[in-house]
Amino acid sequence: MPDVLQVLHSLNPSITHEMTKDGDKMVLRLIDVNLKIEARRSIAAHELNNPQVFRLIVMYALNELRAKGSQVQLSVLPHWD
Rank of each mutant, 00 (worst) to 15 (best):
V27F: 02
L65A: 08
A44D: 11
M26Y: 12
D3C: 01
I43Q: 00
R29M: 08
L30Q: 02
V27T: 07
M1L: 15
T20W: 08
V76P: 07
M26A: 12
L28M: 04
H79K: 08
E64I: 05
L5M: 10
D22F: 10
L28F: 06
M1R: 11
S70M: 10
R40F: 12
H17M: 06
N12M: 03
G23Q: 07
I37H: 02
N49I: 03
L77R: 03
E18Q: 07
E38G: 12
A39Y: 04
K68Q: 15
M59Y: 04
L62E: 02
H17T: 08
R66V: 08
S10N: 05
R40K: 13
G69N: 09
V76T: 12
V58K: 04
R41E: 15
I37F: 06
H79D: 13
H9D: 13
L30K: 04
W80T: 05
L5H: 02
T16K: 07
D3H: 01
R40V: 15
Q71P: 00
M59L: 13
F54K: 03
S10C: 09
H9Q: 13
G23F: 04
V53Y: 00
M26T: 11
A61H: 03
S75A: 15
E18C: 08
N34W: 05
T20A: 08
V58Q: 04
L65G: 09
S75V: 05
L56C: 09
R66A: 14
T16P: 02
L74F: 02
S10D: 08
A39C: 04
N63C: 13
W80L: 11
L77K: 00
V76N: 07
D32N: 09
V33R: 09
L77F: 03
M19S: 09
R55M: 05
A45I: 10
V33L: 12
R66H: 09
V33K: 10
E38R: 08
V27K: 14
M59S: 12
P13T: 12
R66Q: 14
E64K: 14
R29I: 11
S70F: 03
K25D: 08
L56N: 13
R40H: 06
V53K: 11
P13E: 04
M59G: 03
N63E: 15
A44V: 02
D32G: 07
L30Y: 01
I43G: 00
H46E: 09
Q6C: 01
P2V: 06
L11T: 00
W80M: 14
E64A: 13
H9M: 11
F54V: 00
W80H: 10
L77G: 05
I31N: 14
V53R: 05
R66G: 05
H9Y: 03
N49W: 05
H46N: 15
I15M: 01
L77T: 03
T20F: 06
N49T: 01
V72N: 11
E47G: 01
R41G: 02
A67P: 01
Q73P: 01
D24V: 14
P51D: 02
P51Q: 05
I43A: 05
P78M: 06
V53M: 09
L48Q: 03
N34Y: 13
V33N: 09
I43T: 06
I43C: 03
I31V: 15
P2D: 06
Q6S: 14
V27I: 13
G69D: 10
L56F: 12
V53A: 10
M19T: 09
V76A: 14
D24S: 15
S42K: 13
